[in-house]
Design a protein around this nucleic acid. Structure first.
Lengths: 253, 253
DNA sequence: CGCTCGGTTGATGCACATCAAAGGCTGTGG
DNA sequence: CCACAGCCTTTGATGTGCATCAACCGAGCG
């Protein structure tokens, strides 16, 4: 009996890997063209990048699909190509805390590979259909750790992220409306298309609440208010901000 | 009249600079011996370090003395040698937010120098008498930016700092007692002497409150309670934790 | 169809903020 | 030397913003 279960496990594992690998493909020239635009590869040309990401795999994630689980051994890092990720720290009480939203160009889990043995300290999940480039530890050690320019860029990207988190912390004592407004404006600012007022990250009120460390009802109360005032409206998980000026006003007051 | 004021300003400026330079001295061999112990210089020998910190100046800060002001042009970065620094973000309401406590081995403001022109985004003030090694931008550009190993270490140090800030964020929804306990235990863990239960950072309740984003009265209510229970007591700005086990219990519950 | 998930609304309670007042300690200037 | 100002701590009274709990609705989905 136990054998049968074991065999079933092994089989499902095999199928899982086949299925997984079917979704892990080599980045093509077009993908690399995308990468060239990111700050981290600023100053590197097409050929450089090809070498730097040797052994990389493109990974397509569905909405809510997990990229890394907290506690897993860190054997690769990722660069967001399309879509978005949420970096989540599980807490003892079960109410998660979202530490950061990663958008295209963001690097996730790279510095973890500086240590020989390490485990991801957070859960990373896709928000909406998302594409990432996964780069194995071997490549990181062979091409990234020894490349001063790359490390410098990596530092800059991480630094920007830290500044974002610090900005958040600056608002802890502010009223909730101000904090939500700041979050939305901040996410809007990452939009590559500056004319569009649609957040490129699909967010539930719960996720906004998790990011600010408050209850989702509190977020809803404020946002449905804004909804009635015509400041925002959402279609199909995506949020559109109609009254950007008004929100900025709220942040600054 | 205006001229006289102007002259006064210029004179005070001159005297200030003389006085300042009198306190900026070349690091000696003993100082470098200290530096060797820090993670950032792990794998570098005495001679390496001497080269890497070429042009560096040792700076002694008095309690509460400002190292960098938010908005100043970033022309150098610092490594904490002795004592501690607080990194403070001013807010619009005047109630400051402490972003991080830097202790010996911490690096402050380095990644800012990756950009050609940049300004410090935070105020940095000494907590207690503190010694830092100030390294000029020129040295950073000449020796640090081109050195992959140094950049990697820099990344690791920054990464650790980010993890600390994320840990803090994880506790936003926890009751205040738990958050204070976590802060104290965290600071205690940085103590080089593991037997001592005296925080090496002199902290006022106001600073603890600023770090957690709460009112100082709330901190006092909890800590004076602990005081009566004999868990902590403070002499002369320094806090001694007698009931470490009890505090850890509070953090874990 | 029943299921889950996300959004919404209301009633109630509490943890912490705010305001106020007072005492101790330190440094400073007359 | 004292007087005074400024900072830190303490305690109490009062207020409030958000949490919590509970119930309901609509949409998507197997």
């Amino acid at each position: 009996m136990i054998y049968i279960i074991r065999i079933k496990e092994i089989l499902s594992d095999i199928f899982y890997n086949i299925w997984k690998s079917s979704r892990m493909i080599q980045p093509n020239d077009y993908d690399i063209l995308q990468l060239e635009k990111f700050e981290i590869f600023d100053g590197f040309n097409h050929q450089d990048i090809k070498k730097i990401i040797d052994g990389a795999a493109l990974k397509n994630l569905r909405h809510r699909e997990m990229l890394y689980s907290s506690g897993d051994s860190a054997e690769r890092f990722a660069i967001v190509l399309k879509g978005a990720l949420k970096l989540v720290r599980p807490t003892t009480h079960g109410d998660d805390v979202i530490v950061y939203f990663a958008t295209p160009g963001d690097v996730v889990g790279a510095l973890l590979l500086n240590q020989r043995e390490s485990r991801y300290p957070i859960n990373v999940k896709a928000l909406g259909p998302t594409t990432v480039v996964c780069i194995p530890r071997a490549t990181y050690e062979a091409s990234w750790m020894v490349n001063a320019k790359l490390q410098t860029k990596l530092g800059s990207v991480l630094f920007r992220r830290m500044k974002t988190i610090q900005d958040d912390k600056t608002l802890i004592k502010a009223p909730l409306a101000k904090r939500i407004a700041a979050l939305l404006i901040g996410l809007l600012a990452r939009n590559p298309d500056q004319d569009s007022n649609v957040l490129m990250v699909p967010l539930t009120r719960q996720e906004i609440a998790d990011s600010l460390g408050v209850a989702c009802e509190s977020v809803i109360r404020i946002m449905s208010d804004w909804n009635h005032q015509g400041l925002i409206h959402s279609h199909d998980k995506f949020l559109e901000v109609d009254g950007v000026d008004r929100l900025i006003e709220i942040v600054n007051q």
